[in-house]
Amino acid sequence: MMEMILSIGIGVFAASGVWLLLRPRTYQVIIGLSLISYAVNLFIFSMGRVRIDVPPVLKSGAPGDPATLADPMPQALVLTAIVIGFAMTALFLVVLLAARGRTGTDHVDGREPD
């Protein structure tokens, strides 16, 4: 059940993101990029296998049995990916505003289609 919800969530995010990405307005593109990065982040997270109620790191003194632990690696990776994705979106937002100011339109080609 949990896997189902997660995968549907990733699918909906990715599909909406792709659709928005193909739209002609820069604002739609940046929202699309954000949605895709949510989908990707959830996907990375799910690659560590979805488990409930398990600690991600070893307890000191306890024997290390991988079967009783969540994989901490994807959690670390997803953290990095979130930070980088966030920074890149912010950077793109600046370019988007610059383009709006310079070209006077929010079309991705910098000019309205004839």
């Binding site: 890149m88 610059a98 070209t103």
Partner: peptide, 14 residues
């Protein structure tokens, strides 16, 4: 340049 960046950046983000 801004116009070129508007294509270059999203493509690389994807």
């Amino acid at each position: 340049r801004v116009r070129a960046g508007l294509h270059y950046i999203p493509i690389n983000l994807v």
